[in-house]
Design a protein around this nucleic acid. Sequence first.
DNA 1: TACGCGTGGTA
DNA 2: TTACCAAGCGT
Length: 382
Amino acid sequence: MSRLIVGRVLAWFTLGSACKLDPPELPIKAPLSKIEEMVARPKSSSKGTSRENMLDDSKSRAVFRRALLKWYDANKRDLPWRKDRDPYRVWLSEIMLQQTRVAAVIEKYNLFLKLFPNVEELATASLPAVLAAWSGLGYYRRARALHHAARTIAQDLRGKFPQTAEAWRELPGIGRYTSAAIASIAFGEKAAVVDGNVKRVVDRLLGRRLPVKEVWAHAEDLVSSKRPGDFNQAMMELGATVCVPGEPKCLRCPVVKLCTKRGNLPGGAKSAKLSKTTVFYSLDHRNGKIRLAQRSKDVSVMPDMWELPEIVVPEGATGVASPTVWLKLKHGIMATDYDVRVVRETLSNGKKPGRRIPVDQLHAIPLTGLARKILKAAQILD
DNA sequence: TACGCGTGGTA
DNA sequence: TTACCAAGCGT
């Protein structure tokens, strides 16, 4: 057992008393001096200066920037939207990533780019075609805004992308975060971002939950002038992979020396009550066609999108009155957990809602996520 | 300002 | 299993 390992374990116990840490990973790569350095907090000034945190002087911020960017260069994930700085691709990735996990975005991003490789192709596409490509990602308002913005860029701006965060923000679906992300990543503008990751990182660095407005101010103080896009992505990468919700992996953190909390902060959890509902859908699959119904354009959730026709079953209907369920699955939409029962339709008598759509055309239909899930479970899709 | 807007991964 | 919540925006 080397001295390094002993040191690492000691570091683990020491730090672990302040925050829960992963056990040391072997083999050890960091030299012992590094680990001792990590455990020791910087000496607070004996001159009696009342520093609120370790980032309120420019020298500490420079140290932070350097350490974070070095870590990012060595540890960043290989993601498809990091291959280049093409504004269209950066923009598309940022819209897709809003409130959506990286793993869910990757597949849709690649598919979307094949269908709509540039802003002109997106602008000339139909809205249903764009929604169909977005199907399953959720928050479909994003796709509508993206399509609208593409037409604005292609027509009003004659195909020329906005060049500044301020100009990007004029477009639909682009707010303070997204405009700054695009401007910094694609155009090198010194604009800070605050998302859920940055908020969590800054809160922990300073040791308390801050109002979002203050987090923006800190982020703007911190952001690198030379590599703003990389810095912003590094902050988010740190939050997504190291300074994660729950118990952070402080032992892997490149800026733990500068961190006040070195652990999770209490509170902050808001309980969203989930209701439960049972729904019945009709699966009518005959002659290579599926019967689908289009949702009203007036509903707030997923207007105009297509789903299986719903069957209205009297509440509490059980036993012989209950339809024969062919497939059962669970699906959550917003604050409701749906217990989904699919009834197989075999007869064609009577007038039915919706349209029968050939299976080989389903890829062009804006299906709801639930419809997609049912069709997959029935092995009709994918 | 607080809330509505989808979906699926994770502890 | 349940609850949290992920690179937010618009109203």
